[in-house]
């Protein structure tokens, strides 16, 4: 990828990222954070590429550690988000999502 293409993709993705979550209700802050957290677990793809091209045992070990960590991020992230949303469903349905400001200690 040349620099300009990379920059183009980057800038467009930034705008999409801003746009898709711009109207999130405060009820969903935590699950949305958790879901986004799961998505960056896709670094697993990078870890697989590096592990798949490893030629020495040292590189392979480090790459496999990366693979392990990335898998935990990816799988755990989606599962825990699903559980979170499961807890909110039932209670959240039928009631208007609160959009009040302020939390307290």
């Amino acid at each position: 990828m040349d620099a300009v293409t990379t920059l183009t993709i980057f800038v467009l993705a930034v705008f999409i990222g801003f746009e898709v979550v711009s109207k999130v209700s405060s009820t969903l802050h935590t699950p949305l954070m958790s879901g986004a957290n799961a998505i960056h677990g896709i670094i697993l793809v990078g870890a697989i590429i590096v592990a798949g091209q490893a030629e020495s045992i040292g590189v392979l070990v480090v790459a496999l550690i990366a693979t392990l960590l990335a898998t935990i991020n990816l799988v755990g992230g989606f599962v825990v988000t699903d559980r979170m949303l499961d807890m909110f469903s039932g209670r959240a349905s039928g009631r208007k999502a609160p959009e009040k400001k302020g939390e307290q200690l």
Binding site: M1, G17, F18, V20, H29, A36, I42, V45
Partner: peptide
């Protein structure tokens, strides 16, 4: 890898918005 670039940027951008939204909600 274009996918990592796009997915990571999406999370980075939406995460920034979300951080600001959470902070202002509190």
């Amino acid at each position: 890898n274009v996918l990592l670039l796009v997915a990571g940027t999406l999370v980075g951008a939406s995460g920034t918005i979300l951080t600001r939204a959470m902070a202002s909600a509190m």
